[in-house]
């Protein structure tokens, strides 16, 4: 369980203070799929970095299973928008990276890597270098790499932001497919309202200046999410609600 308790983040800005996050609170149950949407600059990445342990909050605290976050940890996997694959390592070696760091023996490493490479459907590319892969494939490697160290939480910051619309839809379906086989708590940041609704069981809508949560919308659509669901009136209703919450925010001047 993740508890975000009045988390605040202030950056110094030209002698003054810039409040990137102002007292954000949120609780996530285990194996939830929560998406965070909001205009750019509302502190989504900052919140993710705090959860990942890459940044420390200026106030408040983030707790994972009751323990305050202090630095990155193997129970929290992170997937970055820029893929962040090690370009000198093959797909397999990338996926094995965290396992090697943890001192897992070679044979076991290979076995685990094989499993997750298969799970994201890249068996044929196990020995390819990242430069040979398309953007969508790179992101699937990143997902396999995060999964390989067996985190209980996956933090994904606009992971499909840089791929084309068609590939994005397939990646969403594939991610849900992977998630249904290997349940984890997922926090998924996006600025795409359709994506937010399609993936989540809860959509968190944020606003900027100061970065804050304005609405949390439950998505009571069943999994597995199919194309029928994407085209259903219920989906459209939810999408419109989230859209309204994101684009009709009162922005303080």
């Amino acid at each position: 369980m993740i508890v975000i308790d009045r988390v605040r983040k202030v950056f110094p800005l030209a002698g003054a203070e810039f409040v990137a996050l102002g007292d954000v609170s949120l609780e996530l149950a285990d194996n939830e799929f929560v998406t965070i949407v909001g205009p750019s600059g509302c502190g989504k990445t900052t919140l993710m970095n705090i959860l990942a342990g890459l940044e420390t909050p200026s106030g408040g605290r983030a707790l994972v299973d009751g323990t305050p976050v202090a630095g990155p940890g193997p129970e929290r996997g992170v997937i970055f928008q820029q893929y962040a694959l090690f370009p000198w390592l093959t797909v397999r070696k990338n996926v094995e990276f965290g396992l090697r760091t943890a001192g897992v023996p070679a044979a076991r490493r290979r076995e685990i890597a094989e499993h997750f490479i298969h799970l994201v459907g890249l068996d044929q590319f196990a020995d390819a270098l990242p430069k040979m892969l398309s953007g969508g494939m790179k992101q699937r490697v990143a997902i396999a790499r995060a999964y390989a160290v067996n985190p209980s939480i996956l933090l994904m910051d606009e992971p499909f932001g840089a791929v084309d619309a068609l590939t994005r839809v397939r990646l969403q379906e594939q991610l849900l497919d992977t998630w249904s086989q290997e349940r984890r708590t997922v926090v998924f940041v996006t600025h795409d309202v359709d994506e937010a609704v399609f993936l989540a069981n809860r959509v968190v809508v944020m606003a900027a200046r100061p970065g804050r949560i304005v609405e949390v919308i439950d998505v009571d659509l069943p999994y597995p999410r199919t194309e029928d669901i994407r085209l259903s009136p219920a989906f459209a209703t939810l999408r419109n609600r989230v859209w309204g919450a994101v684009y009709h925010q009162e922005t303080p001047a």
């Binding site: 990942a52 990155p72 940890g73 193997p74 992170v78 970055f80 962040a84 090690f86």
Partner: peptide, 27 residues
């Protein structure tokens, strides 16, 4: 060296020494 690569290694459990040997040197 791309800062995201260093962060990627950190969230995969790498400490300074490992980051140096396995990210900074090859990069």
């Amino acid at each position: 060296v791309d800062k995201t690569l260093i962060n990627a290694a950190r969230v995969l459990g790498a400490k300074d020494r490992t980051i140096f040997a396995r990210v900074v040197v090859p990069a």
